[in-house]
Simulated assay, not measured.
Amino acid sequence: MCEKDELIQEAITIRNKAYVPYSTFPVGAALLTNTGKIYTGCNIENAAYPVSCCAERVAIFKAIADGERDFKEMAVVADTKRPVPPCGSCRQVMSEFFDKKLTIHLANLHNTTKSVTMDELLPFSFQPEDLTDR
């Protein structure tokens, strides 16, 4: 199975573990490291909505907590008409840890995908060097 298809399948599988009693909108994400390890995440909601966490951030935070810092590509899947786009908060977190050329596969359950680079997903993003380049 090619990396894109495998990542999408992993995202679909983890999506089934999402905790979404409020939105009923499960999302799955799968993140491939340069060492070949795949980290998955699903969205996890909370009655205090702002403390919920999206699938993309769960996968990224799991990888970071495990010491990973070099990523190859990511897939995000939801049951939407178009390939599901990450929210703004996820895009900002992704831009912190992903190279501008890293590929992100956006997908739905109808086999529709759109692959974009990090820079296409969030051009002109706020970066760590913006804190020191004053």
Rank of each mutant, 00 (worst) to 15 (best):
A75C: 06
A75P: 02
V76L: 15
V76E: 01
V76R: 01
V77M: 01
A78Q: 02
D79C: 13
T80H: 07
K81V: 15
R82V: 15
R82D: 15
R82A: 14
P83N: 09
P83R: 04
P83H: 08
P83Q: 09
V84L: 14
V84K: 03
P85C: 14
P85S: 14
P85R: 12
P86R: 07
P86L: 14
C87A: 12
C87F: 06
G88V: 08
G88Y: 09
S89N: 12
S89M: 13
S89I: 13
C90P: 00
C90E: 00
C90F: 01
C90T: 02
C90S: 08
C90I: 01
C90N: 00
R91I: 09
R91M: 15
Q92S: 07
Q92H: 07
V93K: 04
M94Q: 03
S95D: 11
E96R: 10
E96L: 12
E96Y: 10
E96S: 07
F97T: 07
F97P: 00
F97H: 13
F98C: 01
F98Q: 00
F98I: 04
F98K: 00
F98E: 01
F98W: 03
D99P: 01
D99Y: 06
D99G: 05
K100P: 09
K101V: 11
K101P: 03
K101S: 13
L102S: 06
L102M: 15
T103M: 11
T103E: 07
T103D: 07
I104V: 14
H105Y: 14
H105Q: 10
H105P: 08
H105F: 14
L106T: 00
L106Y: 04
L106C: 10
A107I: 03
A107F: 02
A107D: 00
A107V: 04
L109Y: 02
L109T: 10
L109Q: 06
H110F: 14
H110A: 15
H110C: 11
N111E: 15
N111D: 15
T112M: 13
T112Y: 08
T113N: 09
K114C: 14
S115E: 05
S115Y: 06
V116G: 02
V116S: 02
V116Y: 00
T117W: 03
M118S: 05
D119S: 12
E120D: 12
E120V: 05
E120L: 06
E120W: 03
E120S: 10
L121Q: 03
L121I: 10
L121C: 10
L121V: 08
L122V: 11
L122T: 03
L122K: 02
F124I: 11
F124V: 11
S125W: 06
S125G: 09
S125T: 10
F126E: 02
F126K: 06
Q127K: 14
P128G: 04
P128C: 05
E129G: 05
E129Y: 11
D130M: 10
D130E: 06
L131E: 05
